[in-house]
Computed example of a mutant assay.
Amino acid sequence: MRVFVAGGSGAIGRRMVPQLVARGHQVTATTTDPDKRAMLEQLGATAVTMDGLDAAQVGEAVAAAEPDAVVHQMTSIGAIDMKHLDRAFAQTNRLRTEGLDHLLAAVRASGVPHVVAQSYGAWNGIRKGGWVKTESDGLDPMAGTAAEPVMAAVSRLERLVVDAGGAALRYGWLYGPGSTEILAEPVRKRQFPVVGGGAGRTSWVHLDDAASATVLAIEQRAQGVFNIVDDEPAPVSDWLPHLASLAGGKPPLRMPAWLARPFAGSAGVLMMTEGRAYSNAKAKQQLGWQPQHPSWREGFAQDLAA
């Protein structure tokens, strides 16, 4: 297949491009940074510099690639500030809305038969009922918190991609080379406390597993929403102390929700105390996907020991 990866130089794109190439696909991968073109070419892709928020550039790039599938992996995520998620994700929200609109317009104009897009499903399941959610349970809108615009962008993306006959992949909290250490550093410094008992659940997924699931969704022309998470959704009170120990730090501090809210914001407190994680049963059954890192426990250890 000819596969167009928008955002190919990102964390998942860099892991996905070589998997696609190894399976015999022709890959066109985009980046906003011309200096990253050489890296994409070394991975086996045809590299294109493209601004995902420029409709003309997107249309021209997709038309030139003549792809059988378009993959939306465009994000702009730096350090995560739970109190100000609306600020931290402002550019990513635009890429998930305006950028998606440009890609879908290009898909229609060029007659591309299939679309796959990155969504998010780590701790943002609807906050009612059990702790682990399926695709039919939906996302929590996080109304009134700094996460509300993030959830609105993700929900819109899922709806439009599914309506277009494509697949929206809800990746769990991503970790892997480069990403695990970014999270481990504030944990090591005891800047990431367990709030209100830490009962909220989180789903994780290794970057390589997120990439392999995406490859399967492309190859199988999958349709609908899929949770791409590992086998062990876990309470914060479990994974956070484990990560602190692996990172060589002291056990995380513990504080009540009222004390944490001015620092972590309402979204951060909700994640810690009420977050709902996700089941990967559908992805396993329908895509035949099996994560190579079935548990964050071993995954964290491998990454931090590397």
Rank of each mutant, 00 (worst) to 15 (best):
M272S: 09
M272K: 05
M272P: 00
T273C: 05
T273Q: 04
T273R: 02
T273F: 00
T273H: 07
T273V: 06
E274M: 15
E274L: 10
E274Y: 06
E274A: 14
E274C: 10
G275I: 08
G275K: 10
G275Y: 05
R276I: 08
A277S: 15
A277R: 07
Y278T: 10
Y278W: 11
S279P: 00
S279R: 12
N280I: 10
N280F: 09
N280D: 04
N280C: 11
N280V: 03
N280Y: 09
A281D: 12
A281W: 14
A281K: 11
A281N: 10
A281R: 11
K282F: 05
A283K: 09
K284Q: 12
K284D: 04
K284Y: 09
K284R: 11
K284W: 03
Q285N: 14
Q285F: 14
Q285Y: 14
L287I: 04
L287P: 06
L287Y: 06
L287V: 12
L287A: 12
G288L: 07
W289M: 01
W289T: 03
Q290Y: 14
Q290C: 15
P291T: 02
P291K: 00
Q292V: 05
H293R: 13
P294Q: 00
P294E: 01
S295H: 05
W296H: 10
W296I: 02
W296D: 02
W296N: 01
E298M: 13
E298N: 15
G299L: 02
G299K: 07
G299N: 03
G299Q: 01
F300D: 05
A301I: 09
A301D: 05
A301T: 01
Q302V: 13
Q302I: 13
Q302L: 15
Q302Y: 14
D303R: 01
L304G: 00
A305V: 13
A306W: 08
A306K: 04
